[in-house]
Design a protein around this nucleic acid. Sequence first.
RNA 1: GGUGCGAUGGCGAAGUGGUAACGCUGCGGCCUGCAAAGCCGCCAUUCGUCGGUUCAAAUCCGACUCGCACCUCCA
Length: 497
Amino acid sequence: MSEINVYNTLSAQKEPLIPKEPGKIGMYCCGPTTYNFIHLGNARPLVVFDTIRRYLAYRGYKVTYIQNFTDVDDKIINRAKEEGQAPQALANHYIEEYFKDADALNVCRATVHPTVSGHMTEIIEFVKALIDKGMAYEIDGDVYYAVSKFKEYGKLSKRNREDLLDGARVGVDERKKEAADFALWKKAKPGEPFWESPWGQGRPGWHIECSAMSHKYLGESFDIHGGGFDLIFPHHENEIAQSEGRFDRPMAKYWMHNGFITVNQEKMSKSLGNFFMLRDILAKFPAEVIRFYLLSVHYRSPLDFDDQKLEAAAKGLDRLKTAVRLAKERLGRQGSEAAASTEIGQPFMEELAKTKKQFEDAMDDDFNTALAIAVLFDAARLLNSWVSDPASVAFAAIAAGAVQLEELAEVLGLGLAEDIAGAEEDPALSQALKGLLLDLGGHEAAGIETLMEQLLELRESARKSKDFATSDRIRDGLKGLGILIEDTAQGPRWRRG
RNA sequence: GGUGCGAUGGCGAAGUGGUAACGCUGCGGCCUGCAAAGCCGCCAUUCGUCGGUUCAAAUCCGACUCGCACCUCCA
């Protein structure tokens, strides 16, 4: 099997992925600050790195995946103050809410989800080690990292210290030795939450948590560190300064960054009024559509959100699902038996192997999910062509093709298995169907399945007697209720759409 | 000002030297009572502009024009 290539921000090029330990990968991704529901921008790295993790696992690696929560932070403190709540309670609440959204997006739980509040000991120890080594200094309860002590500072973001000084226009702390120095530990102001430390009461700076927690769970040096583009500077640059300043070895071998999201071609911002929580979108589109859409563009490219694009994505995803559904219907019961007892013909096997290879090649090339999805579409068309051939007795191939399509989609976290139509009872729909049935002179029945059976029976008898007015009335009526009727050689079928 | 990224058909989006994937939309055909779904076929001689390198460039180099991001604890 060919090797996986990943784009490394550090080297600004694609490199073969060679784990530190064969067969194992340690991966750390920066998670959200939990002061609100997650927004669209948070959703992309979640889905992207979850997919990368899934693919690495698919390729046989044992992946240790760490994603933190920043649950101690100014934004949390401010918001808690506004709402008259305890900061930690607020943070914990949004951690719970985070998991609801992540679950909806079919994002697997990380190996560990460490929190800042749960790792004060490690953080303090880390800061102490940096001071002891002369990489940091304390001033009146604050601790700063001395950027001048780390010669490689700027290597990730490709900046030199002169560039940084240009940018530092505002609010430079006079006490800092150098403008670019950043806080490792912040002294608590009155009324703020604090933890005891060798430098008095305070709380950690933003960057130190990731150095401390990645060290604890993945060691001094690990394989992949991920996050959004905007974290390259200052966050990841500072993490490198901290971890490599302390341990004198590469913090992570590969640095991966996902591109930004825009909404209607504009950057999300509160002032533009286009700042969307994931839940806003979830109210309009199924989570699986959002996941599919996020993966339909390469993770390093910018991605724009609007309703038209999501609608197109919904149709695309539906096409993949339809292929699996049609294959299963074609197989039916008899077909399943035939499939089990028949050998897959050589040409079919070759086609299936080719698809799998193309999918893997796409993912091997810096996790090109857009190309991988294109392969899925090709596979769907191929499968459809087998299914729609009336003479086809390639049951075994159809069965294998459907299974493979589902499996590959699952690597991307996309479930193609059909929701059991109408299995969930829907009182409003049920009553509407009963009304329609009564209008047509039928008898009231219980349960959506039974109601549909009766309506389709009525329609079939109307069709047989060429009473198309009635049959179309039924079909149109159902369409108005979100139920689609399709006539096939094996009789009518229905589904909710 | 500094740093970096991008520009591909109606829309979205792959493609980094060998002659433009894929999805949505649209058009024609098959199928259907009509549809729907599916299948088959068609829809960029062209990849922001202008030069250059090469037998050959969307792909490499240079200039330019637009657009975007980071430098300000927003992923």
